[in-house]
Amino acid sequence: MKTTITVNGQARALDLDPRTSLLDALREHLNLKGSKKGCDHGQCGACTVLVNGERINACLSLAVMHDGHEVTTIEGIGGEANLHPMQQAFLEQDAFQCGYCTPGQICSAVGMLKEAADNWPSQATEDLGAAIALTDAEIRERMSGNICRCSAYPQIIAAIRDVAGEVA
């Protein structure tokens, strides 16, 4: 089935079996191996990408559902020559050990910061009528869809804190 997806700013024409997940389309058809397949069931978050600016699990979506959409993977967030502030912060805070979950963590963190800036609530939000204060409890709750088997969680929070700034 013919599908055109704009991936990291470039329109990519694909002809796919409808069963192809967005994750497999990115990895196996477009050779973008940054997005990782961990559980393939939406439980680990290693496949997190941004679709039209919002984070989703690429493993739980069919590529054909995304015709005309804009997808940003870790390769589009930044690379060695132009690191995104979140990537730089992960390096500086040593926010990974094996690194397998890291692309998903970074895409998720970038999407999460926009959600918080847009004042979307989370389970950690005590006052639904007030502006979101991105406390550590908020960051932990909002990042709970990304698992790190090496358990670099304290450093991941530190890296996200570096980018988000301190709570006023």
């Binding site: 939406g42 919002e54 984070r55 989703i56 699990n57 999407g111 389970q123 990042m143």
Partner: peptide, 12 residues
């Protein structure tokens, strides 16, 4: 709603 799933799942 915010007590269910993850941010990624709720976006989809």
């Amino acid at each position: 709603i915010v007590s269910g799933g993850s941010g990624q799942l709720r976006n989809k």
